[in-house]
Simulated assay, not measured.
Amino acid sequence: TQYLKTRAPLSRSLWIIETITTAAPLLGLLGTILGIIDTFKALASAGVSDPGQISGGIGTALFATGLGIAIALFCVVFHNFFRTAWS
């Protein structure tokens, strides 16, 4: 009976993990796009004087994508675990 009591509330809360799984990579891509836009703005105003600054800016922008994908993968694992554990 305890299983049946806890199953319904936990199953109803899976939408939160699903939303995070969907939104995390999208927010990471948004961060990447904004970072690359800032890098191109800096290029337009200062020119290509130091390629290290450009690659550093793009590296920071790509970090956002990596973080978003990592969060999504983490949430997918837990979502699948909870879905199979309570189905």
Results as ranks from 00 to 15, higher is better:
13 S>I: 01
48 V>W: 06
75 C>L: 14
55 S>K: 08
54 I>Q: 01
87 S>F: 11
31 G>E: 09
8 A>T: 11
30 L>Y: 08
76 V>D: 13
52 G>Y: 06
75 C>V: 13
66 G>C: 10
66 G>M: 12
1 T>G: 07
87 S>H: 13
35 G>M: 02
51 P>W: 05
67 L>G: 07
76 V>C: 14
20 I>A: 09
7 R>Q: 13
75 C>T: 15
50 D>Y: 03
30 L>R: 03
42 A>V: 04
54 I>H: 01
9 P>W: 05
53 Q>L: 09
29 L>T: 06
34 L>N: 05
84 T>R: 12
24 A>E: 12
43 L>P: 02
43 L>M: 12
1 T>I: 00
28 G>N: 06
58 I>V: 13
45 S>G: 08
20 I>D: 02
75 C>E: 14
52 G>R: 10
16 I>K: 00
35 G>C: 05
39 T>N: 02
69 I>W: 11
82 F>C: 04
60 T>K: 14
53 Q>E: 05
44 A>W: 00
23 A>N: 04
27 L>F: 12
38 D>V: 03
83 R>I: 03
31 G>H: 07
66 G>L: 13
39 T>L: 04
19 T>N: 08
32 T>Q: 10
35 G>N: 08
65 T>M: 11
60 T>N: 11
16 I>V: 04
5 K>Q: 03
10 L>C: 04
74 F>Y: 14
73 L>F: 10
14 L>D: 02
31 G>N: 08
62 L>K: 09
54 I>W: 02
56 G>Q: 12
85 A>P: 12
21 T>N: 13
7 R>W: 01
1 T>R: 01
49 S>Y: 10
